[in-house]
Design a protein around this nucleic acid. Structure first.
Lengths: 101, 101
DNA sequence: TCGATAGTTCGATATTTTTCGAACTTTGGC
DNA sequence: GCCAAAGTTCGAAAAATATCGAACTATCGA
């Protein structure tokens, strides 16, 4: 398996973060990871085909928002809280507390 | 001139805001408006054709980030600071203090 | 009234994203 | 070794965005 490019904390670009969060499904993933701590891709997929789910996780990973670790045959995803907070203080807490309507 | 749809503060959707800010040119516009207070479209265009500039201002307007007021033949644009702060506390200050590298 | 200036709108093309099936990889269990 | 489970990758097609010229609108000044 080729290794996914994970930007270092200082390399996280705010445009990429914004783009990643502009999709409702990805935003939902981020919010759930914030609550659940870690989760497999499958645990968060909402009836979507796995290639689509994989695509969205990749966007989040490449933007620097999540980290993925292998646990046997499954991958556990987690928010990169400290990294994001260090790079963009306040952003995550704003995203997580923002409510619709 | 048809009236541009401006979402009310409570109607501002975070996905739309993120999408609007995911473009480097639009992000730059927001940052400059934060510093300059008000500016015409032309003052912020960077050699782009005016139809493109107009498009980007429209995306910002429809996302709820800026407000445009007519002043004679020109339009003055301003950040909707209070509205954004009320709707998503911390977001704007995070955007404005985030620096590249 | 005639320009000139500042934007907007329209339409067409180009670029980027999204979506999803099929084939492939990796790991664990039998 | 073989099979199932969990993802990834590839490729193609669909959808959304961006770009830009041309025509149009509104306002100010001479």
């Amino acid at each position: 398996m080729r290794h996914a490019r994970l930007p270092a904390s200082e390399e996280i670009a705010i445009e990429d973060v914004f783009h990643a969060l502009s999709d409702p499904f990805r935003l939902e993933i981020v919010r759930r990871l914030a609550v659940e701590g870690e989760a497999s891709c499958q645990a968060l997929e909402g009836d979507r085909p796995k290639s689509s789910v994989s695509h969205h996780f990749r966007v989040l990973r490449e933007a620097g928002l999540i980290r993925t670790r292998n646990e046997g045959a499954t991958r556990m995803n987690a928010l990169r809280r400290e990294d994001i907070d260090r790079r963009f203080p306040g952003l995550l807490s704003c995203v997580l507390s923002a409510r619709n309507s």
